[in-house]
Design a protein around this nucleic acid. Structure first.
Length: 822
RNA sequence: GCCCAGGUGGUGGAACUUGGUAGACACAAGGGACUUAAAAUCCCUUGAUCCCUGUGAUCGUGCGGGUUCAAUUCCCGCCCUGGGCACCA
């Protein structure tokens, strides 16, 4: 190989073409080999690939390429989460139909991804906006409808009275419409829901299966989100004798109830005529959910005049309407115990409601009039009838039993998780396959009529209304049951539905069934899923839910879709997330043009470990480029020293060459560990940089010696394949340059010899009372006794110890000796 | 507010497994070599403070306590920053 410049542009183009023409990354079922499914969260085609994508997909690509070298049959697909709000916003702004805008974006972004050299099988590509994909969204919806997992109920949405349209939360920030700045109100609409709450316990149980392989924080967040709590459903009574059930996790405080609070949406309130209360209810209903549940906003309420009777002591208390009580949680009403609940305490103080102490602090008795906050800790029950004197934790169980025995309550499990509302009053999404007939009611679209195709030729008037509602050719249909004129559902599905099962569709994206059994059976589940931490709860919970539903339908073998999860941090520049509005966006294309894809990939992996946020730095990129160039130059310069099959095995090497050889094997050991187990690529790259520095440090004459050539040949054989998952193009080029016939994509991950990873000499330290007094190079085979002896004979130690009494000597093998003196 | 993370030199970060030498690797900065010059490249220095300039001393991992022979690592209490909060994806 003659000395050539590192011409990344032609190298990258060349190898991308070779991989493409040879079909190197096509994925085929092969039952004789273990499969490995690497999946990165697919992007929303917003127009351009951004650095967050580059990072996500680089991490995925290194895993895919590494596993291929380890002999796995790797599955590595890519696709497009291509329904959603931005396409409509673009349509309104530029009068471009969402279909065209999205298609063009996909085309552009695909070209960008190809330039980065990711090892995808593009024949598996899916795009959720294509009827061939969303047909199956609709099919799953019908199955869920059959099983009672999809249902309709009234729920409120953000409504702009000025634009006469529904707003997404992000369009209604601070309670103001993003387009016209008018005050956002709430509007009640009939909407479709998925009964995810039916799967709450399954979702929790599934956590055990993935506990060891998912980040702990993600599981914790999901558990808290589901919020399973066991408690008691207590039947309070209205004066009319009507039941008034509430849910509480603190039955031990039930004798301390001094008022009750009900959600503004509660049906009981329909009978209220008082204009003040009515006005209050309307005001609450118009408040957004974020505002109502946020603790920074004031908790407000009003007395309804209704009295409620406590079944335990017969006491009559007032019923308030409160903005902080949610109809969706529990029964939509709560009992309030101001003495022992912080929120109730504040509410009671505000409205002058009395409080009653029912749990006392055994160490220092409480006086209600002196309390400045609720007493929420444990203690002894007081003022609690026959339960007085019990420890409050025992009382929880005793009171629950009493309630069950006397028919005034029942032990219940309650969840914070709410059912998943999937209706969107939007155009650019998957149509919900339902028809409304005056005679037959809600009729599912028959399977044979799927897909319900979303019209792509639409007219956006710029008023943000879904164009579907004014398309008679879409809306007007015949009832599939009675043939009468009927109306098609114009709501579309939440895009989270699309992304809840795409991972399985990749296995057979063009199949005329939802999945091809052989393909899906072989490839699923995903062995490694990679994506942003921002998806920790919603997307990942919905995807797990769908996987369980599909498993119950007999379509997937596994319940958990993602065996292992890596959540990556964000890409930051100048202290904040890269975004157009902040003007700190770096376009990957520019960097590729300047330094090449290998450099961009390397920097993405080197600048931070995957789980942490990554600070973009233009200067840092140059460092990565410099490293690649250094390796390139070294290999070019010494290429004549290489001979295939030349090996230093069994040769007694001179000290410096032996050290280099040990460096090589040690690097390989650490890089293997970092890539396979730790998924910490920044330290792996640091190891390779150290190895490169070590290569440069070897004198030329030594490297050119007989033995030097042997060591260099081994370096070529191991170092270049080791670089391959990180910088595949330049690695392939170097490899081919040494006359290699097979591509690195087909080469095995190099082996290291454990014997060659041990250094002869190590440094140990001597401490006095934990402070370092001396350091010393010793043989790595030193015994503990020898270490202690050396420490005691060390001049510094002798000086420090003289005149003092040695109380203790701690020897940590291979590390240190600590002498405690007093 | 609630849930979950994070905080280490001028900067990004390292210190894994099990508490055991804080600052690997890189960037920036400074100095030198090469060059008519510049770029590129190669080499050296680089946490802070102090002095008796050494194989030196002291301090130092957001802040305040604690456990331990030993704490970036474990415990308690704060402060700050970021992610999520159910219609952005």
């Amino acid at each position: 190989m003659s000395e050539r410049e590192y011409n990344f542009a032609s190298i990258e183009e060349k190898w991308q073409k070779v991989w493409d023409e040879k079909g190197t990354f096509l994925n085929r079922v092969d039952k004789n080999r273990p499969k490995y499914y690497v999946l990165e969260m697919f992007p929303y085609p917003s127009g351009r690939i951004h650095m967050g994508h580059v990072r996500n997909y680089t991490i995925g690509d290194i895993m895919a390429r590494y596993r291929r070298m380890k002999g796995y049959n790797v599955f590595h697909p890519m696709g497009w989460d291509s329904f959603g709000l931005p396409a409509e916003n673009a349509a309104i702004k530029n009068n471009t139909p969402p279909f065209r805008w999205t298609s063009e974006n996909i085309e552009n972004m695909k070209a960008q991804l190809k330039k980065l050299g990711f090892s995808y099988d593009w024949t598996r590509e899916v795009a959720t906006y294509k009827p061939e994909y969303y047909k199956w969204n609709q099919w799953i919806f019908l199955k869920m409808l059959e099983k009672g997992l999809a249902y309709k109920k009234v729920s409120s949405v953000n409504w702009c009275p000025e634009c006469q349209t529904v707003l997404a939360n992000e369009q209604a920030e601070n309670g103001v419409c993003w387009r016209c700045d008018s005050e956002v109100t709430q509007k009640e609409l009939e909407q479709w829901f998925f009964r995810i709450t039916d799967y709450a316990d399954d979702l929790l149980k599934g956590h055990d299966e993935i506990a060891a392989t998912w980040p702990e924080q993600v599981i914790t967040m999901q558990k808290n989100w589901i919020g399973r709590s066991t408690g008691l459903r207590v039947n309070f009574k209205l004066e009319s004798g009507e039941d008034f059930p509430i849910f509480t996790t603190r039955p031990d405080t039930i004798f301390g109830v001094t008022f009750m609070v009900i959600a503004p949406e509660h049906p009981l309130l329909e009978q209220i005529k008082d204009p003040g209360v009515r006005a209050f209810i309307e005001k609450c209903k118009n408040q957004s959910m974020v505002d109502r549940t946020s603790d920074t906003k004031e908790k407000v309420g009003i007395d309804t005049g209704i009295k409620v009777i406590n079944p335990f002591n017969g006491e009559k208390v007032s019923l308030y309407v409160g903005n902080f009580v949610l109809m969706e949680y529990g029964t939509g009403a709560i009992m309030a115990v101001p003495a022992h609940d912080t929120r109730d305490f504040a509410f009671a103080k505000k409205y002058g409601i009395p409080m009653k102490l029912v749990i006392d602090n055994p160490d220092s008795p409480l006086k209600p009039e002196n309390m400045t906050d609720a007493y929420t800790a444990g203690g002894v029950c007081v003022n609690s009838g026959e339960f007085s004197g019990l420890n409050n934790t025992d009382a929880i169980e005793k009171i629950a039993l009493y309630a069950e025995k006397n028919g005034i309550g029942k032990k219940t499990v309650n969840y914070r998780l709410r059912d998943w509302g999937i209706s969107r009053q939007r155009y650019w999404g998957c149509p919900i396959p339902v028809i409304y007939c005056e005679k037959c009611g809600t009729v599912p679209v028959p399977e044979k009529d799927l897909p319900v195709v979303l019209p792509t030729e639409v007219d956006f008037r710029g008023d943000a209304q879904s164009p579907l509602t004014r398309m008679p050719e879409f809306v007007n249909v015949k009832c599939p049951e009675c043939g009468a004129a009927a109306r098609r559902e114009t709501d579309t599905m939440d895009t989270f539905v699309d992304s809840s099962w795409y991972y399985a569709r990749y296995s057979s994206p063009r199949s005329d069934k939802i999945f091809d059994d052989e393909e899906v059976g072989y490839w699923m589940p995903v062995d490694q899923y990679i994506g942003g931490i921002e998806h920790a709860v919603m997307h990942l919970l919905y995807a797990r839910f769908f996987s369980m539903v599909l498993n119950d339908l007999g379509l997937l073998k596994e319940r958990e879709p993602f065996k292992k999860l890596l959540t990556q941090g964000m890409v930051i520049k100048d202290g904040s997330k890269m975004s157009k509005s902040k003007g700190n966006v770096v376009d990957p294309d520019e960097i590729i043009k300047k330094y090449g894809a290998d450099t961009v990939r390397l920097f993405m992996l080197f600048a931070a470990p995957p789980v942490k946020d990554l600070d973009w730095s233009d200067k840092g990129v140059e460092g990565s480029y410099r490293f690649i160039s250094r390796v390139w130059r070294f290999m070019q310069k010494n290429s004549s020293l290489y001979s295939e099959g030349l090996s230093p095995d069994g040769v007694k090497l001179d000290g410096e060459l032996q050290k280099l050889r040990v460096d090589l094997h040690r690097s390989l050991k650490f890089v293997t560990h970092d890539v396979e187990e730790r998924m910490q690529y920044n330290t792996a790259i640091a190891r390779m940089m150290e190895l490169t520095n070590a290569l440069y440090a070897v004198p030329e004459t030594l490297l050119e010696s007989q033995d030097g050539r042997k060591v260099f040949s081994e370096v070529v054989e191991k170092f270049i394949p080791m670089m391959y998952p990180f910088v595949p193009h330049v690695a392939e080029e170097l490899w081919a340059g040494f006359g290699k016939k097979s591509m690195l994509a087909e080469v095995s991950w190099p082996e290291f010899s454990e014997d060659l990873t041990v250094r002869d000499e190590i440094e140990i330290v001597f401490q006095i009372n934990g402070k370092i007094k001396a350091k010393c190079m010793v043989s790595s085979e030193i015994t503990q006794a020898e270490m202690e002896k050396m420490a005691m004979e060390n001049d510094k130690v002798v000086e420090a110890v003289s005149g003092k009494q040695i109380r203790k000597v701690i020897v940590v093998p291979g590390k240190l000796v600590n002498i405690v003196v007093g």
